[in-house]
């Protein structure tokens, strides 16, 4: 595989393909490299900085998996699933219930992923598909209804009090050259990276993954080659729900407790990351999610006036608004053709 092909496959299309440019441009790549260098230099100079960077990456990889879930659905149906966070929260409660019944953490983890997948497919088939042709507004309102519904059901079954789950990675801590890293953070990073890689392999190299991409890009053309587009969209919802479950399950060890509101801020950060990445670009969503996690974590320490934790969400909102105004196509998105 040549370097060009590699870039092409990663979605960095300016370097990969000759005529169509859909990915990150050279300035954006330069910005990313500069950011990475900044983090590396900072980490070498201060161990606190290094620790914040690592935990920021861990935080960010949670945002990234939820952002990726949003992007999967957006690419397939041009709609944002506002219930994505609550779906993730609900499935995390299911995992909690499994551990209460005596399953080990990881057995509960994988069982939950399967349940989330089925639930995602069911949601798409039962409530999204019937309104999909009507309007974006109709789908948005249905997902908001789902948000409220899931919230209510979780409150009903499990109540509003925080719940505690076993820690998946234990409480041990590593010291590498004066830098302290918790195993929870490292485990969070590892699991989310593994999830993203597995998904990427699936979409890139399997027939089903290819058919799903084709359905998202050109449904009419996909139908003509025999792809069952409606089922592919439903599978997309299934994968998104499973990814959301991963982000929910990874949020829990970071917050130490389970509560019905736990995914609401994460959803906003994930929205910000998805928009920053261009809303259509999976690579963009992952990189932006991680970058946002690190940025907010560092801001909490070195932000001066902005380091108040009450300002984390408003800062994320400001980032989102800024991106939408300056570069609505995001860092990795296709430039939208504005017709007016």
């Amino acid at each position: 595989m040549s370097v060009y092909e590699l870039f092409g496959r990663l979605g960095i299309r300016d370097l990969g393909a000759r005529r169509i440019s859909t990915g990150a441009s050279v300035p954006v790549l330069a910005l990313l490299v500069a950011g990475a260098v900044f983090l590396a230099v900072g980490s070498l100079m201060s161990s606190t900085f290094a620790e914040l960077t690592v935990s920021g990456v861990a935080q960010g990889s949670v945002f990234a998996s939820l952002a990726l879930a949003l992007v999967l659905i957006y690419r397939a149906t041009e709609v944002v699933n506002f219930a994505q966070g609550e779906m993730a929260m609900g499935t995390t409660y299911i995992a909690y219930q499994f551990t209460v019944w005596g399953l080990s953490y990881w057995a509960a983890f994988f069982a939950t992923l399967a349940i989330a997948f089925v639930a995602g497919v069911a949601v798409q088939q039962l409530v999204i598909r019937p309104v999909q042709r009507k309007s974006v507004l109709a789908v948005v309102i249905v997902t908001i209804g789902l948000l409220s519904l899931i919230d209510g059901v979780v409150l009903w079954i499990w109540g509003g009090d925080p719940k505690f789950m076993p820690a998946p990675f234990g409480n041990s801590v590593y010291h590498v050259g004066g830098v302290t890293m918790s195993l929870t953070d490292l485990g969070t990073i590892a699991v989310s990276i593994a999830t993203v890689v597995v998904l990427w392999l699936f979409f890139q190299f399997t027939k089903l993954g290819l058919a799903m991409r084709a359905s998202a890009l050109r449904p009419a053309a996909a139908r003509l080659v025999g792809v069952r587009v409606n089922w592919m969209l439903a599978l997309g919802w299934g994968f998104a729900a499973a990814l959301g479950a991963v982000s929910g399950l990874l949020t829990e060890p970071n917050q130490f407790v389970l509560s019905p509101t736990m995914m609401q801020p994460i959803l906003i950060y994930a929205f910000a990351a998805a928009v920053l990445g261009g809303l259509e670009s999976p690579v963009g969503a992952v990189i932006s999610g991680i970058a946002l996690g690190v940025f907010l974590n560092l801001l909490g320490q070195y932000g001066g006036y902005l380091k108040d934790s009450a300002l984390r969400l408003p800062v994320a909102f400001a980032v989102l608004l800024l991106v939408l105004l300056v570069k609505p196509s995001g860092l990795f998105g296709r430039a939208a053709v504005r017709k007016v």
Binding site: G8, K207, R213, A221, G226
Partner: peptide, 25 residues
Amino acid sequence: AHVPEGRGLFPELTILENLRLGAYT
């Protein structure tokens, strides 16, 4: 096989992926 107006290709996908989709069924 129906090759429609505008050819019904997937311009965002690679040539190989387009060919693989041809053999989808």
